[in-house]
Amino acid sequence: MTAQETAPVSAGRGEPLVVLSGVQKHFGQLHALKDIELTVTRGEVVVVIGPSGSGKSTLCRTINRLETIDEGTITLDGKDLPQEGKALAALRAEVGMVFQSFNLFAHKTILENVTLGPIKVRGMKKEAAEKKARELLERVGVGHQAEKYPAQLSGGQQQRVAIARALAMEPKVMLFDEPTSALDPEMIKEVLDVMVDLAQQGMTMIVVTHEMGFARTAADRVVFMADGAIVEENTPEEFFTNPSSDRAKDFLGKILKH
């Protein structure tokens, strides 16, 4: 967690943390992931972009096995993803996940949302879990909302709570599956600010997003996907100014025109 502030834009920093190798996934006839090779190192921030249906969300979800894969291997910190059961639950505790639709537990207060995992999974005492949860909620700027229910918060606030909920488990890596796609424009910034903070503190992050600003500010590497395959990987600067594949040029042409 040191020297991250000055770390150069480079994919080689740290040892491999998440490694996908030869990953194949089908949804019926659809070949959703085609022979995916991806290594994310400790402390690295990888942004995955691509047109809708390109498999980027599926890729993200395979890493904590919300989606199973047909072939290939995925390792976290050198260990293969386990099958169903207690071992898989233990793995998921190590991998934070932030969803497009927030998915806060609707029947629990904000504070309970953040303490549930630490209490039930980590076996923390309630008081200790609440103290930590309040710190995290403070950190993401929703400390004063702790006693409310999710439905009483704005989308941006809910998403920041979702980030705090994931952070409460002290994960090794954070997955963001289009975290700002369901938000009003003015709320996007408050969520991205939290994510940029997190990146600067050295969290390993895999972020599926269309936010080019975030990619330029915080990402070490951009992975461009199309039709289930990784088409191109590069530094954000190189990727946005000088994409090498036609598919990426076409995609960037469409989204950057407006």
């Binding site: 919300l66 233990a90 991998v95 969803f99 998915n103 537990f105 995992g117 999974v121």
Partner: peptide, 23 residues
């Protein structure tokens, strides 16, 4: 109950029976 609730429960490391009973 929306599938996302169970996914969120599993993604913080709750076991199957915990996500069923807690969430």
């Amino acid at each position: 109950v929306s599938a996302g609730q169970a996914e969120a429960a599993r993604s913080i490391g709750l076991t199957f029976s915990q996500s069923l009973s807690q969430v």
